[in-house]
Each structure stands twice: as structure tokens, then as C-alpha cells.
Amino acid sequence: MTAIALTSQQDSAWRQSCRRFIRHRLALFSAVLVAVLALLSICAPLFEIALGIDANRVDLFSRLQPPSAEAWLGTDELGRDVFVRLLYGGQISMLVGLVTALAAAVIGTTVGLVSGYFGGKLDAFLMRFTDGVIALPLLPLLIVLAALDLGKAGLPETIVDSENVSLYRIIAIVALFGWTTVARLVRGTALTLRERDFVLAAKAQGAGAVRIMTVHILPNLASPIIVATTLSVGNIILVESVLSFLGLGIQPPIPSWGNLLTNAQGLISSAPELAFYPGILILLTVLGFNFLGDGLQDALDPRA
């Protein structure tokens, strides 16, 4: 009897987490919301075909049209379809959010693992460094980095002149500041894990530091990393949209929710709804990722 209870308890650790997550109705709803928004954004080209329009074609004869059968949310100041451009903007904003969050998680995990596993002077230095980065005024520095002349910084011309340079740049600079939360979390846990018996056993068998960190310690860090990364996606989307709004992030003609709002700012008295849509989509997406992260936290780490 005891044995059966034990095994069923063991193999259902993940299932238990799943059940806790599903019970968290708000988080489940958010997961669906984010999935629907992502799916709609990915399907942007299909909508273009179905509606028979080209979202980038300027048509000055049909500027600022009200919603109709072919332009579901009307047209903007250059006669482009608002709905489809919002979906394309969503592609970029979500892509930036996810890729940057992953890049930041990789940096943070590396710093945290090294710091927590080796400890001592290296740990003290890395954590001081992390504290220093956390204490910096984020947005003003991001603005400086976004305004830099990449040619003067010595980057090869193929990157500087590339069409997508604004996309690469924003991912790189936001990841540069976004790794600190994960680094601290990972370091804290790694610090306790390295004293555990299974790590000592691996060490006794002659496993190297890299192997112990990646094979033995890293898998035990999965849940805090997943939670922190999910929670950071929303923040990153907010930062990206602010920079793009200020004209320093994703550059037109690539649409992002932030730079769609830049155009709309000049039209707030004639067409306020143009300013409304991108923002409400940012709000919903960020809210979705935040609830998702919160739900995952409850599901994966019931003590917190």
C-alpha cells in the first residue's frame, strides 16, 4: 500500500503541477489569451490573402476610413489596413519579447551557475557586478545604446546596413540589462544545491565542474528559471514598445506595437482610436504573460 502511494506520488510531480496550474483559472485563461494573440499574429499573411489587401500599400484616397467589411478596424493616415498591421506589429513585439527573454535567461543562468557553484571571490565579484547593473537607470541607458552609431562602435557593415538591424539591436541591448533577476535566483539555488549529496557523489566519481553544473545542478533549477523568464517577457515587451514609440526601437517600415503608436500620437484629436488599439494589445499581451508567470509560480513552486 505504502509502495503504491509512493510511486504514484513520484510520477505525478509534473501532473500535480499541471493540476495546480489548471486550477489557477486566471493563468489558464491568460495562456489561452496569449496563444490566441500569437496565433492571430502568425496568421497575418493569411488575413491579407483572405481580405484581398496589401497591408503595406499606401492608398491616399482611402485615408482614415471607418471600419468596413474589408478593413475591419478601418485604415490609418496613409490608407493602410489597421487590423492587419496590428497583427504584423504583434509578430514583431512577441518575437522580440520571447527571444530577448530567452537570451537574458541564458546569460543570467550562466552568471548565476558560475557564481553559485564556484563561490568565493568570483561569486563576490559577480554578485557585486549584478547589484551594480540592477542599480542603473534602465531606460535612459537603453536610449543611449539605441541611439549609438553602430558603425563608430566598430561593427561590420553587413550588420549595420542590414534591414533588420533595429530588431537585432533591441534584442541585444535589452538582454544586456535583463539577465539580473535570473542570475540572482539561479545563484541562490545553486549555492544550496552544490552542498547536496548527489553533487558530492558526482564530484567523487570525478565529474568536472561543467558537467556537474549542466547535468546535475541545471535540471533542478528549471522551475525558477521558467517562472522568471515568463514574467520577464511582459516587461521586455513594455520596454521594447517604449523604445519603439520614442523612435529608437524597431524602425518603420517594420511595424511594432510601439511604433504604430508613434504615428497615432499626432492624430489623437482626429483619430484617437488609432492610438487605442496598439496599446490595448500591448496591455493584454503583457497582462497575459504576467498572469501566466504568476500561475506557473504557484504551480511549480507551491511554497512561494
Partner: peptide, 25 residues
């Protein structure tokens, strides 16, 4: 909790624009 999460997730520049549209325009 819901209100707090919404407040955290609002893009500040968008809220500013909405405030201007509603209370100024």
C-alpha cells in the same frame, strides 16, 4: 490583485496618450 496586475502591465506612454485624449481633448 487584478487591478494591480493591470496597472503593472499598462504601457506608460499609452496611458499618457489615453489620459490626454480623455481629459484634455
Amino acid at each position: 490583485n487584478l487591478v494591480a496586475f493591470v496597472a503593472i502591465s499598462i504601457p506608460s506612454f499609452w496611458l499618457s496618450l489615453m489620459m490626454i485624449i480623455l481629459f484634455s481633448v
